[in-house]
Simulated assay, not measured.
Amino acid sequence: MNRILITGAASGIGLATAQRFHARGWRVGLVDVNDNALRSVHAELGADTWFQAVDVTDPAACRAAADAFAARAGGLDVLFNSAGLLHMGPVEEVSLLNHHRTLDINVKGVLHMSLACLPHLKRSTRPRVLNMSSASALYGVPDLAVYSASKFAVRGLTEALNLEWRRHGIVVQDLMPPFVNTPMVTGQRYRAAVVDRMGVKLNADDVARAAEQALDSGKVHTPVGLPFRVTVLLEKLAPRWVTRELMRRLSR
């Protein structure tokens, strides 16, 4: 039986992915900072799932969670780093505390969990790490500046670890969706112009399905949704200034 540990599992993409893999018969570990929401998800999915409230900015807590899930499940095959934070707004109007928190969760959290799970993944026969990057890692997005920067970091970390950890037999991948209809996007007090220009056309299950497809492939990056896949293709073929101009128009 396959075993997957999911961060940010109490809502949004993490929840949809937990539901999808649980339905496929996987042993699912649920990690989230929201203990009450986590308990509700555990009650929904059943006693065969494992859960623990964890702040991914705490490396010791990440190690303890990885060890506890691996002990309960008999090992670990896939880590899905889904936990993330987004604060929309002009960069100078978002508090420095929120900028730091975004980087701590979106970047350091991925690093902490990946290192915490490494000893267990090395013992798996088909180990994977799947990270949540974003369409925002293609070109810097106004009013999402620090979030965008964090996803560039995730993209770079994914590419580097995919090369480094091949010596352990571990495939490291990421997902790159544009805006998804989750509380992280719809709950924003400030709405960036690019959201209305691009629209919110994906739901959490679309990304969960893409996660499933990514794990069945060897691709490092998985752009999610046909329009963004076309954008990625154009970005590869066109001069960089074309992407810059497109982003300028979308964010006006």
Rank of each mutant, 00 (worst) to 15 (best):
L138V: 03
M184Y: 03
C62M: 05
L144K: 02
R244C: 03
N203Y: 14
E212N: 12
G12C: 12
I4W: 00
I4A: 00
L233T: 12
A61W: 04
T231D: 02
L130Y: 00
P183K: 08
V200D: 03
G187F: 10
E235R: 13
R244N: 02
T231N: 06
W50S: 05
G109Y: 12
A145T: 11
A61F: 13
A116F: 09
P119S: 04
G89Q: 01
E44T: 15
D77E: 12
N98S: 05
V230F: 15
V185M: 14
L202H: 00
Q188C: 02
Y190C: 02
P227F: 05
A47C: 15
A60K: 10
A10D: 07
A18L: 13
L97Q: 11
D58G: 03
G109R: 06
M113K: 09
V220W: 08
A204W: 04
K108R: 15
T243Q: 03
R240V: 09
C62Y: 05
T17C: 15
V33G: 03
G187W: 10
N2E: 12
R167S: 15
M198N: 11
V195T: 14
R24A: 15
M198Q: 14
V94Q: 02
H99M: 02
A193V: 07
L30R: 01
A137P: 00
V220S: 10
V110Q: 02
C62R: 02
N181M: 14
A208W: 04
Q19M: 08
R63D: 14
F152S: 01
V146I: 15
R209W: 04
